[in-house]
Write a protein that binds this DNA or RNA. Structure first.
Lengths: 202, 202
DNA sequence: TTGCCTACCTAACGTTCGTTAGGTAGACTT
DNA sequence: AAGTCTACCTAACGAACGTTAGGTAGGCAA
């Protein structure tokens, strides 16, 4: 719901972040050169260094912003569904994560696609913030086990990884201009909770 | 079960493919230079060009091999479970895909992590073979709907994308040296079919 | 024995990379 | 009016990139 980025016509530093994130997302970190980023922004390569100390700093800022978008979205979903029934709470958080991926600029999508192959030094500085986001999900799933929605023997660790992995993997095929984000959220939530099997014969 | 690659001590061309796939997987296509690949193999950069016409050709060969490993594994699972009950068939194919990811060299893992950001010309030549693999999964899921295992109103397209996406996403966190591939297969199959919800209260 | 083929090598090419040094035009401050 | 700061610029650096030309040593064929 909350739109973090205007995406168009942001000045200076934010324009660079926008265009760099878009190019990192599409071609990867190494393949997107400072000169191509600068060209997309409409300036010269050297001018980038007025705003960022290095290409790695630029990547780090983008990864951090992506994580921030996710974290804020998670928090909003949490406060919005305090005391709500389990399925509704899960659905809201799924929807929030997907909104972070598709509706708040390229930062989150760039994070999930670029983090794995980012330079080690960049990854290291991001890891704590990333772990914190995963803890949020772990707590949520723990709560849902406690409340009885999820099976008591649920392996919360793998379940979290699979749920996040499945949502993140959707950036490879889901196009928010073609499909509805609400439909996708509902599909993922329902499938996560109840699976694909035929309830009639089960 | 079938091991396609000896992985160690393969001569010439195969050694190059092995080391290149490993480096592409770890750092991405652009970040892994011909010189670093050659160094890993134990030869000079120019010697790579005795075996491949270009870096893009090398990538294409790796992506193709990854797809071939997947396709062969799928076929073996299919023939091995002809006439078997639905859950068993699905489990076998899940296990086959995961084995392709983790037990047959870095080719399949490189494919799933590198394809999206590969140069457009390389992607274009791979797409038909990739589509063919997806058709295999679509047919399998269609069969499972027909046989009554999956709900009649299952959206097979999204279901396939989520299942494959979830399995592929596991390369970000699953380590076959730490966890059992059979356990992971069983977890994914069960979660795909029945979800996480508590069967007692449902 | 000669000649070819395979599998490498050294050396170098032009290009692009990230990055730095130093300059400038305009706005804002004093 | 003078000085300072911001946001860019041109020009250039050394390093690394993919790639090519041309050479060589060993095995195999005639």
């Amino acid at each position: 719901m909350t739109t973090v980025e205007p995406t168009v016509e942001a000045p200076g530093r934010d324009r660079i972040l926008d265009e760099a994130a878009t190019l990192f997302l599409e071609h990867g970190y190494e393949a997107a050169s400072i000169r191509r980023i600068a060209e997309a922004v409409g300036m010269r390569a050297a001018s980038i260094y007025h705003h960022f100390n290095s290409k790695e700093d630029l990547l780090e800022a983008i990864l951090r912003r992506g994580l921030e978008v996710m974290t804020v979205a998670f928090g909003e979903a949490s406060t919005a569904t305090l005391g709500a029934p389990g399925p509704e709470r899960l659905a809201a958080h799924v929807r929030a994560h997907l909104a972070a991926l598709y509706e708040n600029g390229p930062y989150t999508a760039t994070h999930v696609t670029t983090f794995r192959t980012a330079p080690q030094s960049v990854r290291a500085t991001i890891v704590p913030q990333r772990d914190a986001y995963e803890v949020l999900w772990t707590s949520l799933l723990d709560d849902l086990v406690t409340s009885g929605l999820l099976a008591p023997d649920t392996a919360v660790g793998p379940a979290r990884l699979m749920l996040l992995g499945g949502m993140n993997a959707s950036v490879e095929w889901f196009d928010p201009h073609l499909g509805s984000l609400d439909d996708l959220s509902e599909l993922i939530t329902r499938q996560t909770l109840y699976g694909l099997s035929n309830p009639m014969t089960d």
